[in-house]
């Protein structure tokens, strides 16, 4: 409608009411996207823009970001390697500590065994000596006992003879030493 108006009545009125820009828009088909007269302009500026962006990216931005990322990766890798190193060292130290502990233990055991053996040897010697002493003492004792026993037998014989003679005398008999002796010997044997 408005376009018809402008073409019919001239531009003076349209300018007066300020609808000119709308008229221009309406003159184009519904979509400005299909206004082919603006295509070369858009394409030209697009190509300029893309080229500028491409140059900025490839010359400055992308290498810089790649370097930053690589550097960070490097730092992380180095730190990880250092950590790995320290860990290995710690493991090594632990192994050394364990080794020392084991050595000390075996040494201690050796010392204990040696001491035990020495003590055992001393003990054996002492026991042997004691046994020998005991054997000697017991042999001596047995001898003494035998002597005492023999002494006792003789004493008994003497006492018995005397007692028998006394008894015989008391009973009014005549003591015959020989008979008494043989009788006592018989009795003692039996």
């Amino acid at each position: 409608m408005a376009t018809e108006t402008h073409s019919a009545t001239g531009d003076g009125l349209a300018d007066a009411v300020g609808v000119d820009t709308h008229a221009a828009a309406d003159a184009a088909p519904g979509m400005p996207q299909l206004d082919f007269s603006s295509f070369p302009n858009q394409m030209f500026w697009l190509v300029v823009t893309l080229v500028v962006i491409y140059l900025v990216l490839t010359r400055v931005a992308l290498p810089r970001i790649a370097a930053i990322l690589a550097e960070r990766q490097g730092t992380i890798t180095n730190d990880l390697a250092a950590a790995e190193d320290l860990k290995a060292k710690a493991v090594e130290a632990e192994a050394a500590y364990n080794q020392a502990l084991a050595d000390a233990r075996t040494e201690a055991q050796a010392i204990v065994a040696k001491a035990k053996a020495e003590i055992q040897a001393d003990l054996d010697v002492a026991i042997q000596k004691a046994d020998a002493e005991i054997a000697a003492k017991s042999a001596e004792s047995e001898k003494a006992i035998a002597e005492i026993r023999a002494g006792a037998m003789d004493s008994i014989k003497v006492v018995a003879t005397d007692t028998a003679a006394e008894l015989v005398a008391v009973l009014g008999g005549k003591a015959d030493d020989k008979a008494i002796g043989s009788a006592i010997s018989d009795r003692l044997k039996g």
């Binding site: 900025v56 990216l57 400055v60 931005a61 810089r64 970001i65 930053i68």
Partner: peptide, 15 residues
């Protein structure tokens, strides 16, 4: 905007 985002913001190259 692209320059601000990708170039200026990375100018410190911070770890």
């Amino acid at each position: 905007a692209i320059i601000a985002l990708l170039v200026l913001s990375t100018s410190k190259r911070a770890i």
